Structures are given as structure tokens and as C-alpha cells.
Amino acid sequence: MVALSGRAAFVLVLVTGIVVPGVMNFVLSVVLGQQMLGRLVWALGYTLMIAVIWYGWIRPLDLTGPERDPEEAERKVKD
């Protein structure tokens, strides 16, 4: 089995999460005439893709600002 890099896995999830629900929406809505089911499949597929991207790539990021120097903070308070 081939191991994917982080960027390749991200692109694969992104493309799959857009293309597969879109094609399923088309098939269900246009070909089979099930518009509501097509919309539901598209919304669930797109939501699942967003959840996977959040869980796999966004959630692990450490989004904190720089630590403040205590001496610098005291100087700013005094000024």
C-alpha cells in the first residue's frame, strides 16, 4: 500500500468530499428524480468532508499567540 503525504491526503479528502457528493446529487436528483434525497446526500457528504478536514488538519494546530515577557508586561503597565 502506498503511504500518502499530508498534503496529498488533504487534497484527496478535499476532492473526494466535493466530487463524490456532487456526482451522487446529480445522479439522484437528475437521473432518478429524487431531488430531496440528492440534496441530503450532498449535504451529508460535504459536512463529513469538513469534519474530516477539521479533525485531521485544523484541530491539531496549536493556535496560540506568542508568550509575553513578564518584564515587558510590567513596563507597559507602568507606562
Rank of each mutant, 00 (worst) to 15 (best):
G45L: 07
W42G: 07
S29W: 07
V52N: 07
T64P: 04
I50E: 04
F10K: 09
I53H: 00
R59W: 07
N25G: 09
E67N: 03
L4G: 11
D62G: 02
N25K: 08
V13E: 12
M49L: 09
Q34W: 08
W54M: 02
M36Y: 06
A43V: 08
V23S: 09
V20I: 05
P60Q: 11
M24C: 05
I18R: 03
R68V: 01
W42H: 13
N25L: 12
L40W: 14
Q34I: 07
S5L: 05
T16G: 13
L40F: 13
D62R: 01
F26T: 08
A51S: 09
Q34L: 14
T47G: 12
I18Q: 05
V2H: 09
A43W: 00
F26R: 10
L63K: 01
V15S: 05
V13P: 06
E67P: 02
I53L: 02
L61K: 04
L12D: 09
R7F: 07
V30M: 13
V11F: 15
R59P: 01
L37T: 09
I50V: 14
D69G: 00
A43D: 03
G33H: 04
I50Q: 10
L4T: 13
V11A: 15
A51D: 10
V20E: 06
L14C: 10
P66D: 13
R7H: 08
L14Y: 14
L44A: 15
L61V: 00
L12H: 06
P66M: 12
V23E: 10
V15M: 02
T16Q: 08
V30G: 09
V52S: 07
S5Q: 08
R68A: 00
